[in-house]
Design a protein around this nucleic acid. Structure first.
Length: 151
DNA sequence: GCCAACGTTGGC
DNA sequence: GCCAACGTTGGC
């Protein structure tokens, strides 16, 4: 049984198009404990992630594609590299990364505006007020609906 | 670029 | 362990 997730990225930093070019990328730089714990404890190979573009123009902000989890978690090298801007200075705190692999880019974007208005999605973590979590679980019901809507 | 929401830090 | 201060996220 796979789990579905939603992962956020700012498109000017790393977009679905770049993931399509790269094929597989290391999802590093997560510096939030709850998101870290999902990667470390729950995300498994074969899980599927809705790829979300955040912090963009309203018409570009939303779910744009699908990726697969293709590794278990491993230490995030950007946290232990002292020359990295994302270096972790507290020795007792460890961060992890996972590999994700491009699956598809949806024919159209499911904008945040649209998702917020959709009664099928009213309990999604994403559309709840103040949700800043960069890795979110998505229920099977919401995932099936989103795939029928966008995929 | 603004700023509300909210996670984290650290003094007490 | 409380909570004010601070830093970051991300929609707008």
């Amino acid at each position: 049984m796979i789990h579905y997730w939603l992962i956020k990225s700012e498109p000017h930093t790393y977009s679905i198009d770049q993931l399509q070019i790269d094929g597989t990328t290391s999802w590093t730089g997560v510096r939030n404990y709850q998101a870290r714990n999902y990667m470390r404890d729950t995300m498994k190979i074969g899980d599927l992630c809705f790829f979300y573009h955040s912090n963009a123009k309203p018409e570009d902000t939303g779910i744009v594609g699908l990726a697969a989890v293709t590794s278990l978690s491993y230490p995030d090298a950007t946290a232990t590299d002292p020359t990295s801007p994302y270096a972790e200075l507290r020795p007792h705190v460890s961060w992890v990364a996972i590999d994700i692999t491009f699956k598809q880019k949806f024919a159209r974007i499911g904008t945040l505006h649209e998702l917020k208005r959709d009664p099928h999605l009213s309990t999604m973590v994403l559309v709840q007020k103040g949700s800043r979590l960069s890795i979110q679980p998505v229920s099977n019901e919401h995932a099936t609906y989103l795939l029928s809507l966008l995929g």
